[in-house]
Design a protein around this nucleic acid. Structure first.
Lengths: 151, 151
DNA sequence: CTAGGTGCAAATAGTTTGCACGAAC
DNA sequence: GTTCGTGCAAACTATTTGCACCTAG
């Protein structure tokens, strides 16, 4: 897991490399994204950034998100609630499990599932460009000690 | 695969059982849905139905879709384009592969993937209520003869 | 008859865009 | 000094809703 500052620098590097300007607004939004460990939507990002710069506008957030998505610096997800949610893309690919009661998003990854997806697609005559896998579930009433699946 | 009329009757039965009225508009929308072998959005359904009854309104389509979804008679999907797309639910569960060039939607199902999903969720302490799996791909340049995966 | 359904228009919610001004390079 | 980016307000798209009228049961 990268540190916040490294992540902001990485974002900045991506923008510069693409010949884009590093404005105060973008720097601020980048920092908010780097600090986020959840999947905020545009308004959420705006709210957090607005606290540091009350002149920021929501349009700028949307425009910045679009730029960053194009650069591949962030990923946009559209969960069931209909709004676009974002997360920085400096991490390994993963899918999401959404707690239907609390809205909590848990990340996981499964190479086995990925492999099966590729196989199925190939059988249908397709090559997968990207995919979306979301599990919507309810917390199991367990005694305790569970840990994060990874692998 | 059920016939169109049987499907319309099934829809009608579901509505009646729920104590809801069978109006001309609903009958028409039901027929459009029963005849659809794709995944139309509200406007698409409206357009097809409107051809048979120019007094129909888009609001009625939306309201009807909501009722049908509540009854479990149809399924609503939100693919990447952002709009809600619908399909009748009188078929076995399946997921979708979307051709990113043509927009064509191919259906498939994989018990292996479903099993893995359940396993992963359980490891995270969750029970799956529903899920969403969409593959976005490009057609492979093949010589020919491929068939629908089903397994 | 009368509760539920419909059409229309207006309201929402999320997101995008035109324009004039300001800032990064 | 140019060009790109920003704020604001207005536009847009998908969907929902209030209201008066209509119709299925």
């Amino acid at each position: 897991m990268k540190g916040i500052d490294q992540r902001v620098e990485a974002f900045e590097g991506q923008l510069r490399k693409a010949g884009l300007r590093m404005t105060q607004q973008r720097r601020l939004i980048l920092r908010v994204l780097a600090e986020a460990d959840d999947h905020p939507d545009a308004k959420g990002i705006f709210t957090r950034a607005f606290a540091h710069d009350p002149t920021l506008s929501l349009s700028t957030v949307y425009r910045t998100m679009k730029v960053l998505e194009t650069q591949g610096a962030i990923e946009r997800h559209a969960f069931e609630d209909g709004v676009s949610r974002y997360e920085h893309a400096d991490q390994a690919h993963h899918d999401h499990l959404i707690d239907i009661e609390s809205g909590t998003v848990v990340e996981f990854s499964s190479p086995e599932i990925e492999a099966l997806q590729a196989k199925i697609a190939a059988e249908l005559g397709y090559e997968i460009v990207r995919h979306r896998l979301e599990l919507y579930g309810r917390r199991l009433p367990t005694a305790g000690k569970r840990r994060k699946a990874q692998g």
